[in-house]
Design a protein around this nucleic acid. Structure first.
Length: 310
DNA sequence: AGAATCGACCGGTAGC
DNA sequence: TGCTACCGGTCGATT
């Protein structure tokens, strides 16, 4: 399940392989992955063909590929169309150097061919998205109702991502404003961490790991936590994601691999996620699993005091 | 109007 | 061997 560290691992791999390369051919499979693209698959192909890749950017779990009509690597401009990619829960991007003429695989939705490299976008469960979107000002995209929303004003963000909140790995991300908003909510902390409009990139694994690191139960309401507790939770999630990124992400099952097909190694460092029945490494109580808002929640009953909501 | 909650979308796979 | 239940990120419908 690709969350921030896994998506960033893929972004780094793509940067290595396709920056400066010219797209010679694009082939897509019509279907659900293009459901949000206003002009359908054809517009994806016409937008990409002949363009040069100038960058691969990321916010939260979304990636986008910036493009240029000339060979020079120039910064993206306001209004430029980019290819936006979301991997859902089973999406993969793979880089190939051979077999260019093989027909599209059953689960392959887009194939981009460069002179000596080919990118393949695979997604068996089709929860992912592929779409073309125009860049707009990051400040305008910011929906946090922040008074001085200057932290992101120099960044260009695809219009399709304007509902996506700040990413803890973005330079100067407004953690205090995120906390202020979270503390006005009656929703559970775990649910708030998964709300990509509040803070982006955190998924089920790193939400549970961050809550465990902060020794705080995800069943508490947003408004019941102090500023300091919220800071510990968010920094716990960020630290877990940073450590995971350093080892190529978490391959909890075989669904996540990087662009070369290699798994990440953080699953062996997880403290609670998927460890139901095993002992907490800190207090030695047995890790439990419950369901919050329809999602799995793993926690240590010794370290994280549960709050039962009526 | 806004906030919160819940089900639908998929198919690989674990468990029976 | 075959069947069913389960899982999760996001969106849209419902409360």
């Amino acid at each position: 399940m690709p969350e921030l560290p896994e998506v960033e691992t893929i972004r780094l791999g793509l940067e290595k392989h396709v920056i400066g390369q010219k797209i010679v051919q694009t082939e897509g499979r019509p279907g659900r992955l293009f459901r949000n693209n206003p002009f359908g698959l054809n517009s994806v192909e016409t937008e990409l063909n002949g363009k040069v890749v100038t960058g691969i950017e990321r916010r939260g779990k979304y990636l986008w590929m910036t493009l240029s009509s000339t060979q020079a690597i120039t910064p993206p401009r306001l209004g430029d169309n980019v290819l936006v990619v979301h991997l859902g829960m089973s999406g993969q991007v793979r880089v190939c150097q051979e077999g260019y003429d093989e027909p599209l695989a059953k689960n392959e939705h887009l194939r981009i061919t460069f002179a000596d490299t080919q990118l393949r976008f695979l997604d068996p469960r089709t929860f992912g998205h592929l779409t073309i979107s125009a860049l707009q000002s990051g400040a305008r995209a910011d929906r946090l109702e922040i008074e001085n929303s200057k932290w992101n004003e120099n960044r260009l963000i695809p219009l399709a991502l304007e509902h996506i909140g700040p990413d803890p790995f973005e330079e100067g991300w407004p953690i205090n404003q995120v906390i202020a908003k979270a503390r006005r909510s009656g929703r559970r902390v775990k649910t708030l961490l998964l709300d990509q409009g509040l803070v982006s990139g955190i998924g089920n694994i790193y939400a549970d790991e961050g809550l465990y690191r902060a020794h705080i139960s995800g069943t508490k309401t947003g408004r019941s936590l102090s500023e300091e507790q919220w800071k510990e939770v968010l920094e716990g999630c960020t630290a877990a994601m940073g450590e995971a990124l350093a080892v190529g992400g978490t391959s909890f099952d075989s669904l996540y691999v990087d662009i070369d097909g290699n798994p990440g190694y953080f699953s062996r460092s997880l403290n609670v996620y998927g460890r139901v029945g095993q002992r907490c490494i800190y207090c030695e109580q047995i890790i439990e699993r419950t369901v919050l808002d329809g999602r799995s929640h793993f926690y240590c009953p010794g370290c994280q005091q549960i709050e039962y909501l009526t």
